[in-house]
């Protein structure tokens, strides 16, 4: 058994639910009254995929415009990016595209890209179609997910995709930022999520 330690950056416009997604996954809870992130918050979690333990260092960034210029500090040396938008806000989908351009310009090593359309609980107010988002994801070699942090739906798959993507990346000789070490001791204090590698490559459906 070995461990891989990699950095995940969560990007997207203000109020799309970045923190809610991360807190739902790592803290197993949801709050309607979450206050805006200031700068960035840092979380860690472990995901076991077959015989590999993937330790994710998650940087949940602030969506406010004023922190935009600080983003390079958070995405530098990232191995995966979660690009989150709100399916009821077309501008938040547009903002994903500018994030992708920025990442392509500034991050040298290959990245696992996940595009996440959040707030499927507001299906009736949807303004960005699944087809449009899926097509965009394919065009940038990303995987597309839909999620609802409110209903705890579709989130596990996003993080699992990050983890298994990092395992694939770790076999790439170009990738130098992923830390691969043989597993010796259980680290205490961080939650471990047990998973099987998904055999089905299609994006999972969300409620």
């Amino acid at each position: 058994m070995k461990t891989i330690e990699g950095k995940v950056v969560v990007l997207g416009a203000q109020g799309v639910g970045k923190t809610s997604l991360v807190v739902r996954y790592i803290g197993k809870m949801f709050s309607h009254h979450i206050s805006p992130t200031i700068g960035a918050s840092f979380f860690t979690c472990n995901i076991n995929v077959d015989d590999t333990r993937v330790r994710l260092q998650v940087w949940d960034t602030a969506g406010q415009e004023r922190f935009r210029s600080m983003a390079p500090m958070y995405y530098r040396n990232a191995n995966a990016a979660l690009l989150v938008f709100d399916i009821t806000q077309p501008t938040s989908f547009a903002s994903i595209k500018s994030w992708v351009k920025e990442l392509q310009r500034n991050v040298e090593e290959p990245l696992v890209l996940c595009v996440v359309g959040n707030k499927t609980d507001l299906e009736s107010q949807r303004k960005v179609t699944r087809e449009e988002a899926e097509q965009y994801a394919i065009s940038i070699a990303a995987t597309y997910f839909e999620s609802s942090a409110l209903n705890d739906c579709g989130i596990e798959d996003v993080f699992l995709c990050c983890a298994s993507g990092m395992i694939t990346l770790s076999q790439d000789k170009l990738v130098k930022t992923l830390r691969v070490t043989p597993l010796n001791q259980e680290r205490e204090g961080s939650r471990t999520h047990l998973h099987q590698v998904p055999t089905n490559e299609k994006p999972p459906l969300c409620c």
């Binding site: 979450i34 206050s35 200031i38 918050s41 958070y74």
Partner: peptide, 14 residues
């Protein structure tokens, strides 16, 4: 005291 979000996780804040 303005941002509850500091209670959720460690933050790196300018």
């Amino acid at each position: 005291s303005s941002f509850e979000s500091f209670k959720t996780a460690e933050s790196w804040t300018p």
